[in-house]
Amino acid sequence: MSLLLLAIAPVTIIILYIYFKDKYEKEPIGILTKSFLLGATVSIILTFILGYIASIFIPITDIKNVFQQFLKAFIVVALVEEFSKYVIVKFYAQKNKEFNEPFDGIVYSVMVSMGFAALENILYTFQHGAATGLTRAFTAVPAHATFAILMGYFMGKAKFSKHKVKLNLLGLLLATLFHGAYDFFLFINFIPGMWIGAIISLILGIVLSRKAIRKHQNSSIFKV
């Protein structure tokens, strides 16, 4: 039970943080819950299928090959995972009538991502123990949240723009780039000090995420 609480605690904190940042017109709990569950089920299944296909076309034959690890980080992992979350936001949340202001893009993207991160975190924590769960609480889970906020920022803009396709894909691209950079520096840990690159990319993502949140808050159509 303690491992389960450790795994879901950071996810819960991030969900509550984003929920209360949605100051002016909160989303229905039912739709948020469904978005979370879709992230924990459909996104995970899509990731497994697409990741398996990607690994066939991009096999990793040498774990110390930097280029192979680059392809793994940005395509096999980052693009596959972010696309698997993107489709839920695009085809479920973005089409919902409750998605009625740009900030909602951030809210729903984070809910889907936290569903994904919750199941992933539970599996890692139960497999590797409390130390891994504690480390991921301050690294991998916040990283998933920042990728989601960056994606959601542009998907929120896309809903109310004439350039829907461009902005939606820009959100997917940005999330993939930050996710890929974060993983890449961790994957090449056989080079001393490279893990610092992951921390830097995470910090930069957090800074940009906070700006994205403030920008959509300030432009809310429900702000009095």
Rank of each mutant, 00 (worst) to 15 (best):
V224T: 08
I63K: 11
L32F: 03
S113W: 00
H179W: 05
M151I: 04
N121K: 00
T139A: 15
P59Y: 08
G115A: 01
N100I: 11
A198K: 06
E120H: 07
S109K: 03
T146S: 02
S219L: 14
I45H: 03
A212L: 06
K162F: 03
I56T: 15
A158V: 00
F184K: 03
E98R: 06
I206H: 07
I122Q: 09
Q69H: 01
A54Q: 04
V107F: 13
I13H: 10
N168H: 07
Q94N: 11
F91W: 13
I60P: 00
V89P: 00
F190R: 10
S35V: 05
L134G: 03
F74K: 12
I106E: 01
I44T: 06
T132A: 13
I13R: 09
G205D: 10
I56N: 14
Y182K: 04
N65M: 01
A131I: 14
P142S: 08
A158T: 04
R214S: 12
Y52H: 06
I60H: 07
F190T: 13
F20M: 07
I203S: 00
L208M: 15
I49H: 04
K157V: 02
L170I: 13
K64Q: 15
K223A: 10
V107P: 06
E27D: 13
F67A: 12
G152K: 11
A130D: 07
Y182M: 05
E25C: 12
A212Q: 00
